[in-house]
Design a binder for these strands. Structure first.
Lengths: 195, 195
DNA sequence: CTGGGAAATGAACAGGTGTTCATATAAACT
DNA sequence: AGTTTATATGAACACCTGTTCATTTCCCAG
């Protein structure tokens, strides 16, 4: 037997990526086998290689797509007038965007060490690019005197770690919804950088 | 051949844990084989089972030891008088303690999903216990009116994520030493919770 | 100097790994 | 209806996995 009824490239490809993302998030890249991914899709392991050159590329593509999406969505946000407004917008955007795709966020943060050096450098570059959008806001606010920070670079990393941390404890149906959480975090962010 | 000259139980045991911790931190629990750990120690794979019942226990013991050490060191800190001083002490302690043992911290945060449910619950309990030392400080400061926080629980998690985040970017010999970093973070923490 | 026990070996077990490829099949096009 | 082509199979490859255990070696107590 071969080629099941109703099988199509445009369907199987995305399904493989979805299954891989979900499994990588749950069990980790190294702990998930290609046969396991294939089973989740309902296909034999060999068929995966029609859609990805190897397991490493499967991981890398997932991470790069996530970072590309993040940067595109970030760039598409309307530009607020003041540094304070832009910081508020960044805070809300970061929390809401990350809460909407927990698997991709988790994989992109946890599986960095499973990328080969070349792929690691690529993802690292995209991550730095995203961090710079926040750093630029902080620098502007500093120049205008509306923020006071002991160290812009450290403040950038500290704020991002704080915001991304939401993903580690947030569970759907919990005490607080994403919007409320974003408001609470904005209160702390605003004060942390205040002049 | 068997039993090399000069081999002792009191030496091999710790060496296995050190090698496992280092390898788990670098490559991840699932990606590291027992033979790899044995090779790093200079022993055959079978010998590992004289010191651990299985791979899972090896991971769990490393994580539990780390959490026990963290809680013990935290409890041994001198108790400052005011909530503000206690918060400063917690901030400094957390950053310095974590920067001193990056491998144990990394493994304890990244390998939670590789614990079986029972072991996971145990580590989770210790982690919550540690978080409560910070939450207690925040609650005291709130009661005394020296802090103003929209949500104590979220502030606890936000601050810990921010502080632990230092480990993700800190490299020895970098621009700033641990003490300076702790000062900078304290400035942001203090402002974030200020009344 | 010898016996006993601790410490380590190395082979074996049953099964899993990523990846390739000749082959088979279903869908799409003429 | 018949042919081409994309899509999938399933067997095979060489090797690695965690764990067990009979056997061997070395150290130490008497």
């Amino acid at each position: 037997m071969a080629r099941k009824t109703g099988s199509k490239s445009e369907i199987t490809g995305p399904r493989i990526r979805e299954a891989a993302l979900s499994l990588f998030a749950q069990q980790g890249y190294a702990a998930v086998s290609m046969r396991q991914i294939a089973r989740a899709v309902g296909v034999q392991a060999g068929a995966l290689y029609l859609y990805t050159s190897d397991k490493q590329s499967l991981l890398f593509d997932l991470m790069r797509d996530h970072m590309d999406g993040l940067l595109a969505a970030s760039a598409a946000e309307p530009k607020a007038a003041t540094p304070l407004d832009r910081l508020q917008q960044f805070t809300r955007f970061h929390i809401l965007y990350h809460l909407e795709r927990p698997d991709a966020v988790f994989v992109s943060y946890m599986e960095l060490r499973n990328l080969n050096p070349e792929n690691f450098a690529a993802i690292e570059g995209l991550r730095r690019q995203y961090e710079q959008t926040l750093e630029a806001i902080l620098k502007d606010g500093l120049a205008e005197g509306v923020f006071r920070l002991p160290d812009t670079k450290l403040a950038t990393l500290a704020l991002i770690a704080m915001l991304t941390g939401v993903n580690t404890w947030y569970r759907q149906g919990g005490r607080l919804g994403p919007d409320k959480i974003a408001s609470i975090y904005w209160d702390m962010v605003r004060k942390a950088v205040a002049a």
